[in-house]
Amino acid sequence: MAQLNKRLRRLEIMQAVLELGEWLTAAQINARQKRPPCRRSQPASNWKRRGRIYSVTVSGRA
Rank of each mutant, 00 (worst) to 15 (best):
S41F: 10
Q28L: 01
V58A: 09
E22L: 09
N46F: 04
I29K: 02
L4S: 10
M14W: 01
L4Q: 14
P43G: 07
M14C: 09
S41D: 14
R49L: 11
R40T: 13
R9K: 13
S59V: 09
K6V: 09
V58I: 15
A2H: 15
G21Y: 01
A26Y: 05
M1K: 11
A44C: 03
Q42S: 12
A31T: 04
I53G: 00
W47S: 03
K34G: 05
R61T: 08
Q3S: 15
E12P: 05
Y54L: 04
R52P: 00
R39N: 15
R50V: 03
R52D: 03
P37H: 02
S55L: 02
E19A: 15
R39L: 13
C38P: 05
Q42C: 05
A44D: 01
T25K: 04
I13D: 05
G51A: 03
W23I: 03
I53Q: 00
A62D: 03
G51P: 08
P43V: 14
L24H: 02
L4A: 14
I29H: 00
R61A: 07
R49T: 14
G60L: 07
Q3G: 06
K48T: 15
E22W: 00
T25W: 00
G21P: 01
K48N: 10
G21C: 05
E19M: 09
Y54H: 12
R52I: 03
G60A: 07
E19Y: 04
I13A: 10
L24Q: 02
R10F: 11
I29S: 00
V17M: 08
M1R: 14
A26G: 01
S59F: 07
Q3C: 09
I13N: 07
R49C: 04
G21M: 00
L20H: 12
L24V: 03
P37V: 08
I13M: 08
R9H: 10
E19W: 02
V17P: 01
E19K: 15
L8S: 05
V17G: 01
A62C: 04
S41W: 08
L4T: 15
A31R: 09
R35F: 08
E22I: 10
E19L: 10
C38K: 14
L8D: 07
L4N: 11
L20N: 14
E12I: 12
I13F: 06
P37T: 14
